[in-house]
Design a protein around this nucleic acid. Sequence first.
DNA 1: CTTACTGCAAAGGATTTGCAGACTA
DNA 2: TAGTCTGCAAATCCTTTGCAGTAAG
Lengths: 146, 146
Amino acid sequence: MKRDNDAELQFPDNIRRTKQREEVFRLLAAASGPMSAVDIYNQLLQSMTDGNFAMSTVYRVLAVFEEKGYVIKSAPSGSDMSYYEWCRGQHRHYAVCLKCHRMIPLKRCPFENAALDAAEDFTITGHKLELYGYCKGCSTKSNVYK
Amino acid sequence: MKRDNDAELQFPDNIRRTKQREEVFRLLAAASGPMSAVDIYNQLLQSMTDGNFAMSTVYRVLAVFEEKGYVIKSAPSGSDMSYYEWCRGQHRHYAVCLKCHRMIPLKRCPFENAALDAAEDFTITGHKLELYGYCKGCSTKSNVYK
DNA sequence: CTTACTGCAAAGGATTTGCAGACTA
DNA sequence: TAGTCTGCAAATCCTTTGCAGTAAG
């Protein structure tokens, strides 16, 4: 059931392998949604009982992955930091919970190949869609603010 | 032709009037698209020949406007700062130029009231859509990167 | 062995906050 | 006048960068 995401993902072979990069890759490959640099850093601190990890290394590794096109970086409204996701071929869209900030992937892109009569004189190369609201857990807790 | 945006916009009467707030309001009301706090600050420095304006005041005024629901704050991908727009009733979507970062408003929301079979167990309260690409001026300059 | 990568610490840029004085209602 | 708002400067938070040591190919 999780074969689509797990089994096929491999560390890219046009990037120098280091322990740090492999660790970041492993986390992103196993993640179900985008992670922040801090998320990654904290998880690495736990799993890495040996050497130390620097926050700056996380950012640098992510920058390399993004530059090579293996990682997508995004900054949802409401949160003031960036989130990173391993690129699994086709783009993804998310429903972002206004309370816990979890990003829940949509099952498909609501646009597909529909011709958008968007702005004139504009060459569209991509798009980003986020739905905002409350996830199952948060919507039942009733303390919905703003 | 510009009546829709200009003539009807008025300073909200449930907010204390100060010169600074009126100035920020005036700029946002006259703007054709979202402005950053720095944009606002710079324009204010020019028009305000008398007193001084503090960057922090701009942020505080914007925060009040947003809190009261008069201003929408957004953070497009590619830029690392937020943009603010006076809320004109219905929400807007934008085409964001990857080069000059201009945000060009779309003529209509591509969703309208279509039922999105989005994520299950998720209560949608809003959404955000951005198209990325190149505006007329930038696409003809051919130096398209990334 | 050479070049690229990492950890550490310090720097940067956008945004926020503490505080005393200024202004609105 | 009472309470809110502002300017200034310092502080935060996330992210980036300089530098010297370390590891990959």
